[in-house]
Design a protein around this nucleic acid. Structure first.
Lengths: 126, 126
DNA sequence: GTAGGAGTTAAAGTGCACTCGAGGTCAAGC
DNA sequence: GCTTGACCTCGAGTGCACTTTAACTCCTAC
């Protein structure tokens, strides 16, 4: 598979794939006359990176996760991240409820909605 | 309330608060001899911004949301964002499950876990 | 044999969301 | 009246995650 095909299949730009390789998020692909040749594993590796990134891992953390996967040092990293991810999911559910309320609400008094929303938000910081 | 107190109460740095004001995410605070004076509403306004930011709105989108709140143009913005937020929440739940599986798994064969995880990730792109 | 298209590298540039630093102001307490 | 500390503005700097650019190579098709 060329970098172009991999790019089309993953939706990730070719330059982003090169960048991921350079940053050691995915293994260095073997070259055929200077060009990268990928196999099916690259799809999985990129999918792992994207999922982790979507879940809020930084690329530095993902590099750690993938490089420390073979020894057992990834465990504390994963545990810390699980807490963060659960918290992020909670905040997203709150935001979902607020958006749903906001959208479904037909009240003419937009100021009332506003107060209700500000109140929901404020609960979070006190 | 001074900017320092507001900073302590919200956990947001004073420079970030000034930045939010400059970017019109929160209203321009009145000055007393050159210094900003905040009241309780500032707590709510900052909480709204932080919640929206946590939910994945960019500051530009938040500015739109807060500035268009009084007319009814915020509605399509909120609807589009609801879809994104639901999707983000789904991805976070996937990541939570993967992390939980990873952490709870006691198997010695880390390669097996690895394959299972790569498989879960790969499902997402095919 | 040459044009085109896809690939290569290294380095510089971009956008976001702040953060920092310099140089200055202001009120309170000694 | 002077020091201290918290505040002010403005502009530059930072870190992340890429993207773009420049100059080049390689294969295919005409």
């Amino acid at each position: 598979m060329t970098i172009g095909e991999l790019s089309r299949k993953t939706g990730l730009s070719a330059s982003a794939i090169r960048y991921y390789e350079k940053e050691r998020l995915i293994p260095t692909a073997p070259r055929r006359s200077g060009r990268r040749v990928f196999d099916g594993r690259a799809l999985e590796q990129i999918a792992v990176v994207r999922l982790a990134r979507d879940a809020g891992f930084t690329l530095a953390e993902i590099r750690q996760l993938v490089s420390e996967f073979r020894n057992n040092r990834w465990r504390p990293l994963a545990e810390r991240k699980l807490i963060e991810v659960r918290d992020a999911a909670l905040r997203l559910r709150q935001m979902t409820r607020i958006l749903e309320r906001l959208i479904e609400c037909q009240c003419a008094d937009v100021e009332f909605c506003g107060r209700a929303i500000r109140h929901s938000c404020r609960e979070r910081i006190r």
